[in-house]
Design a protein around this nucleic acid. Structure first.
Lengths: 198, 198, 198, 198
DNA sequence: GATGAATGAGTGTTCATTCAT
DNA sequence: TATGAATGAACACTCATTCAT
């Protein structure tokens, strides 16, 4: 928020995303992040208390933002579950389109952070998944979504699939037009691979 | 005593999978791997030339084995594409069921290794995906699979979804009965979430 | 604070000379050099990129300085070859007198470094020897030095002899008064052991 | 002495000389010495109790042999001091001619071993030098050698000069014909560089 | 706040030495 | 004796973090 300081704080976070995306968290040096951010090494520690703190803030910010957006979608009464399902996908795609490096960091580092139970990553991510679950639950209740499918599993499955595609796209954006990916994902998530004769 | 007992070589690899699964590759110490394997630190270097070499061998072995199994499935003429699609899923599930830690390592480290272009990981994994593609292509040709879906994208999507579920399962096997996951995945991959009225 | 105080850089180099002189290059630990220099272990790597880099810099500095001094002597037209020959000896003695430890390092490590063709040691040393050769050549041309003697061999012989004496002196300065050594060397180099009746 | 075992013991020592000459003592691995000697790594320890023991034995053997030869020369009453001085030089040259690698090891490692006071190297070498001194002393007494020259210094000087030339020769035998070196050394040691008009 | 030189704990890797066979 | 796999102590080097300026 504050202009002057906020600039450096943000610059460091953005630099970190870039560096983490390229080298991976553990291979990234604080000095490199500082260099990319255009600040001195020591300055990083004015805004973040450790290297880990940086990546946790990245994920904090990511999932807070996505959860908030998803929340808004859920509350809309004018949309049916199918459209809301599409919306989840759109929220993720839109978010990472703006910042492909963030997609890479997400894909590469999230698991470990959750597994090591660092910071709030697991909790925040769970929050997002829970929101997704609500939408799915709503669809099931309205007999639009298949009751045979375990909603938790479906939710994780779709998120995992998305993650893989986002990663591919983020690494080679030119080979995988995002709109095509998005369209396909929406279709697959709903219909699977089989041809359904109605 | 004799080199080809292979006990120690294998013990180290298995220990590494466990340690990598628990701590992540970068946080894992060679001395810890040695300890778990029941050998001295230096002995690790009798069989592997570096820490990286260990993880690369893990992935080499993994994808070679899976590719080989998939190959056999593809060549069977008595199976239709749908059954073969199920087979891919089974192959992955069976493999990781035997060794949940391996699933975790796979999920956590594969991306980075591929991205940093270490060893043959990318090539071997591509080999596996290419085989999967064959099955999908066959289904498309036989008008069983939906032509609107981009096969490459579908393939990556499903693999990503599987990966996510395997990871969840590997971390908390008791909460996610593998058979239920397997059944759901097979269903979702084919039909998506929607109810299809035939 | 400022990089160019150079205090630390120099302190490390001087500490290294001391430690190398006492233990020999390979037995010397970076941590010991740091300790003697009064800095932290890691600080050594702020100024030198490796242990080898340190010893190479020592030799770089040594031969550059000596060559420069010798060059000045050669260019003097007021000195005859015999005096210039004495000057070579003086230059070496003066140099090592200031820093006996340096003499020891020189004697103990130079051969190996040259043989393994590390850095510029061989080149720089050759530069020094070439300058010495010029003086000898001048003496031969002026019929003052003996034509029967191969100049290259003489040059190497004298340098080797000097080296040995410097080493002895550096280890036990009190037993070998430097002035006596110097006087003897000058005499031997010119007249050998025999009594020449003129 | 014993044939079978003696072979291996000697093979190891000879291999060590070669390896030490090429890599330097500290960079030489026992496993490499064993390989060159054609024995197993562990076998080295059947004959030598440590790496250091090997190099000490090399020097033991070297100086014992040279001292013995020199002793015989000294005792000859039919030779004048000048001829005996030549003999010292011949003994050294002959010895290293047979085994140039030994010359390199001598030049590169002797100082350090003496300085660190390992084994008997210093004592044995001193024995050799003392014998040389006797010859010089004899020359002085007979008014053939110059009384102005400190014998100890002369002795060290000549030995150092020899060492340097032997090293050069051992590294590039083709460039420095040994006989020419030998002739020059003998001349320089006696007459120095100056032309003496008699 | 901002800097970047300084710190020193941490770890992959080597290799002399041992020892079961 | 002979082997060579196994050992584990040792050390160069890295880099997150601190702190004097």
């Amino acid at each position: 928020m504050r202009k002057k300081e906020g600039n450096k704080e943000t610059a460091i976070l953005e630099a970190a995303v870039k560096v983490f995306a390229e080298k991976g968290y553990h291979q990234s040096k604080i000095s490199k992040i500082a260099e990319v951010a255009g600040v001195a090494t020591g300055s990083v520690y004015l805004y973040y208390k450790s290297k880990e703190d940086i990546i946790l803030k990245i994920f904090d910010q990511l999932w807070s933002k996505l959860s908030q957006e998803l929340e808004q979608t859920i509350q809309r009464t004018d949309l049916d579950p199918v459209t809301k399902l599409d919306a989840i996908i759109d929220i993720l795609f839109d978010s990472f389109t703006v910042n492909p490096a963030l997609a890479i960091v997400f894909v590469n580092e999230q698991n470990q952070l959750m597994q090591q139970e660092k910071g709030n990553v697991a909790k925040l991510y769970k929050g997002f998944l829970d929101l997704s679950e609500k939408i799915l639950r709503e669809g099931v209740d309205k007999k639009i979504f298949n009751t045979n499918i375990d909603i938790i599993l479906y939710r994780d499955f779709i998120t995992g699939g998305l993650r893989a595609l986002l990663h591919e796209w983020a690494r080679r954006p030119e080979e995988f037009p995002l709109d095509q990916i998005r369209k396909n994902v929406k279709y697959i998530a709903k219909n699977g691979i089989l041809i359904h004769h109605t």
